[in-house]
Computed example of a mutant assay.
Amino acid sequence: MNSLFLLATSPDFWAVTDDEVPPILFAVYQAFDEGEFHHSGDDTCLSLEVLYTQPLIAKVLERNHAS
């Protein structure tokens, strides 16, 4: 995801997207970013992917399926 975001912020990509990261791509990036580290108060035995990334991806998909 980090590599995809790097591509999405490159000058060549921005030249065709009016200097903007598409909102869905940014939301997916943020979902993966949230699952990369333990947050304050997290149980270190819990899966960060299950705790953060999966629910956020589900919200992104739900929002974009409804439109």
Rank of each mutant, 00 (worst) to 15 (best):
C45E: 15
P55A: 09
L61T: 07
T44G: 08
L7K: 03
K59M: 00
H39K: 14
F26N: 08
H38T: 10
D19C: 15
D42R: 07
I24W: 04
T53H: 03
S3W: 00
V21F: 01
L46I: 15
P23N: 05
L61C: 00
L48T: 12
A27D: 08
C45Y: 11
F32Q: 02
S10E: 03
G41C: 14
E49H: 13
S40Q: 13
S10W: 06
A58C: 06
A58P: 00
Y29T: 02
D43M: 08
W14A: 05
G35Y: 07
D43R: 10
C45T: 14
D33Y: 07
S47M: 10
F13N: 02
L46V: 15
T44H: 15
F37E: 13
A27P: 01
I24Q: 07
S67Y: 10
A27I: 03
V60E: 04
T44Y: 14
H38Y: 15
P23F: 07
L51C: 11
F32K: 00
W14E: 11
H65N: 12
H39I: 04
V21W: 04
Q54V: 14
H38F: 14
D12Q: 13
P11D: 14
L46Q: 15
S67M: 11
E34G: 02
C45G: 14
V28T: 07
E36P: 03
L4G: 03
R63S: 12
Y29Q: 03
L7A: 08
C45S: 15
L46S: 14
L7W: 06
V50W: 10
L6V: 11
Y52K: 11
S67C: 13
V16C: 09
V60F: 00
T9G: 08
F5E: 05
L6P: 01
F26I: 04
H39L: 11
K59A: 01
P55N: 08
F32E: 02
A8V: 01
P55W: 03
D19P: 03
A27K: 06
D18F: 13
D33L: 12
S47T: 05
L25E: 03
T53G: 07
T9N: 14
H65W: 12
D43T: 09
A31D: 05
E34L: 09
Y29D: 06
Q54F: 09
A15E: 08
E34H: 10
L4R: 00
